[in-house]
């Protein structure tokens, strides 16, 4: 992939969450209707249990991946600050195989299906390498 759009400390411009629950560390690419994000799972990640990155962590990472896309667009189009996003609904979350572990790098693709009023409906898929870890459909309220 080319040089990431946002990485490290810069990500804080796109997201309102902070430690210990900031769950995206890189915004790689953005398209008209989606984005690709990443997270390297540190050993002391808030959502780790026995060295594994748990399901709530995956869901939070997917939700913040969509928030990062919304935040990116907010900054680009109106130069306003990234809005605070809340998960409104999760549908069809599936844990594909085993949980990722500390040290793994997650790569997530979010695709917007619809935006109605202040709610974004999107699908998300998270992989480590070529392996799908989890997927879901989610509604984000901003």
């Amino acid at each position: 992939m080319d040089k990431p759009l946002y990485k490290g400390e810069e990500i804080k411009k796109l997201l309102n969450q902070r430690a210990p629950i900031l769950m995206v560390d890189t915004l790689y690419e953005v398209s008209d209707n989606g984005a690709t994000t990443g997270l390297t799972i540190e050993a002391d990640n808030f959502f780790n249990l026995d060295g594994q990155f748990t399901e709530p962590g995956l869901i939070e990472h997917m939700a913040q991946s969509a928030s990062a896309f919304v935040g990116y667009n907010a900054i680009k189009s109106n130069s306003s600050a990234a809005p605070v996003g809340y998960i409104g609904e999760i549908k069809n979350f599936k844990l594909a195989g085993r949980l990722p572990k500390a040290g793994d790098k997650l790569l997530t693709t979010v695709t917007v299906q619809s935006v109605v009023m202040n709610i974004t409906l999107f699908t998300a898929e998270t992989k480590t390498g070529d392996t799908t870890v989890a997927s879901c459909q989610m509604k984000l309220s901003v």
Binding site: R18, A19, E60
Partner: peptide, 21 residues
């Protein structure tokens, strides 16, 4: 709880994923 330091600073909201947990 420490999670509220980051969710969100100055505005504690219980994270949905913590409700799931």
């Amino acid at each position: 709880h420490e999670v509220y330091k980051g969710h969100f600073p100055g505005n504690p909201i219980s994270p949905g994923v913590c409700s799931i947990q």
